[in-house]
Design a protein around this nucleic acid. Structure first.
Lengths: 338, 338
DNA sequence: ATTGACATCCAAAACGTTTTGGGGTATTAT
DNA sequence: ATAATACCCCAAAACGTTTTGGATGTCAAT
């Protein structure tokens, strides 16, 4: 049996009220008593039962995040960094992080959200991989549940978010390719329902236009944010009668697959064929050749999200509801050879 | 205000007892009543308050995992797959997954474990990245708290685990290099306190011995399980007066860095220099050149762990307490060129 | 008519906290 | 001497479940 506040109170000949208030730092308990309480509690190894506390306080001291895992065998370095950021900042606010995984837009996803929210298992949710129209955003704002998002959907409601301007920065990336003199620049994207896809594709088009390059639908293809997806998309592109001389990828994982496909087709990446990614995953500066990318501070973004969520849960009014993060263009040998 | 069991009971003119027992599937409630209860509960959107349930039942219906994140900017594809596996299997058992992160062997790590366990926030823990002597193993078995581990420490106590025989399989990997005729095979490892390091180094030595190759301490160096670590370790190795012609790496991330270093030194990987990794991360078949590795089913291993943990929590006696997983040697171009 | 067995239901206790609304004592002001 | 004021402390209620130990009614067997 675990040790309760009652045990501590009994040992000290105090009421449980006083023990509770002493530990919670109320001012109506004598400083000397408080010290005795703290000391004995520590000695006895007392830790408040979370379930009881949550029941009474009506909050869970937890936040939730549901990993958008599309398949069983799923591995994306993005999530390790993201989850570490969420966890660290959550801990700093005395919150725990509850993680589950569900395929996007599935029954399972819906049930997972409803379960946590209705049963008050969490006080707030973190979303990412937003869709253009996202049922999660609609649902959560409808029931008035606190949440924050990485990226913004196109839903009408207002909610706190952290965002990189994907359109602007993808244009920067493609500008980089165009300014190196390339005129057949391809784009490998992701599912059309994703916000990042819409943004980054738009940025791609912006860049074409500003360099007077024609938009060629044949050069725009779809991956699935995995290296496999990038691999097969790139093979299709490179098998074209007029293949591209540069490929901009919606993310780094996709680009990794492209590097492989390029090699199979005997292209020297950085000379015959330029390849660029987006995200700036740690470790991807060591691809071969090192990958040019737009580097986002994923860990910091995750922390910022939790910070905003914690404030919202605490009922504070957020000064900045829409945080813009500025990534940096990381030019490496996959576009500038050597 | 959320809707409680009392609301449902009132609407049906039943006692909360009956509602509770109807929903929990007890046999002492009439089938017809049960249907009415289930139907109204669904209609009213009733979901039992988790805190109250946990308080009464004395379990949290949650398991915990603490990510061994050594640094702020930390990204390892291993963890995405591992966490997805934990989450999916946990959900299948009606359990939630609580995730935090802490630097191994830190104060913060210790506090994180104690907090969750003493406050009954979780019913069991999943550990990995075990140390040879692991305080977590000692602590948890001392207080009699359910846990399972990936890999096994050398502590005397008995506990359920899932494991790949790192020594045997690392030998298989190095055998592969030796059988290609290489006599100067280097090893890039990790911190000496880690179980995987001890195992894999031992496997490396086993292989040398069985091929009558001398052990040269200069060829054994330490990384830190990141691509950066691999990069710098490889640069040191390649700068030796008598550099190795093959490098076996403790994991895939390390190997990724080695590929980069090799390129900088003008080596053609797969011909001048063989490189091999360990783990079989999804996506790493697309490195350049594709990486030879020992492929572990990380997702499956994670699910197996949770399965065992859930059984242990439910008080069942485990039939298999020490599960051996058989990985496969994945031969790719980083060792056989093309 | 009584008993026993069975099928349904329920009141109340319990889980371990936090919060509410005072209740004593000493100290100071009148 | 009395009133007012701090200062500490506490009993009891509440949070929303699950579980315990019957209570009630029906029906068949005695």
């Amino acid at each position: 049996m675990n040790i309760t506040i009652r045990d501590v109170a009994k040992k000290l000949n105090l009421s449980i009220t006083t023990v509770s208030r002493a530990l919670d730092g109320y001012s109506d308990v004598a400083e000397e008593t408080r010290q005795r309480v703290i000391e004995t509690a520590r000695q006895m190894g007392y830790a408040p039962n979370q379930a009881a506390r949550q029941l009474r306080r009506k909050r869970a001291d937890s936040i939730g995040y549901i990993l958008p895992a599309d398949r069983p065998r799923f591995s994306d370095p993005f999530f390790a960094e993201f989850v570490a950021g969420l966890g660290d900042e959550a801990a700093a606010h005395g919150l725990d992080l509850l993680v589950s995984s569900a395929p996007p837009n599935s029954q399972a996803e819906q049930r997972a959200y409803e379960r946590w929210i209705q049963s008050r298992k969490v006080d707030g949710m973190v979303l990412n991989r937003l869709h253009l129209q996202d049922w999660r955003v609609q649902y959560l704002s409808e029931v008035g549940f606190p949440f924050v998002t990485l990226e913004r959907s196109q839903d009408a409601c207002d909610y706190p978010s952290v965002e990189v301007d994907g359109r602007r920065w993808f244009k920067v990336l493609v500008d980089h390719l165009a300014e190196l003199g390339h005129r057949r620049v391809a784009y490998i994207g992701a599912g059309a329902e994703l916000k990042i896809q819409a943004d980054r594709l738009a940025g791609y088009q912006d860049s074409l236009q500003s360099h007077d390059l024609p938009y060629d639908a044949v050069l725009v293809t779809e991956g699935d944010l995995t290296s496999d997806g990038g691999f097969y998309a790139a093979k299709r592109l490179l098998a074209l009668p007029q293949p591209p001389t540069a490929i901009a990828c919606v993310d780094d994982m996709t680009a990794l697959g492209v590097l492989h496909a390029a090699r199979e087709h005997g292209r020297v990446v950085g000379k015959d064929l330029l390849v660029a990614g987006f995200d700036g995953m740690a470790g991807f500066e060591h691809t071969q050749p090192p990958l040019t990318t737009i580097n986002q501070p994923v860990y910091q973004m995750a922390r910022k999200l939790v910070q905003m969520l914690a404030a919202q849960i605490a009922g504070q009014v957020l000064v900045e509801r829409h945080v813009q993060i500025e990534p940096v263009l990381e030019i490496r040998q996959s576009t500038v050879g050597k």
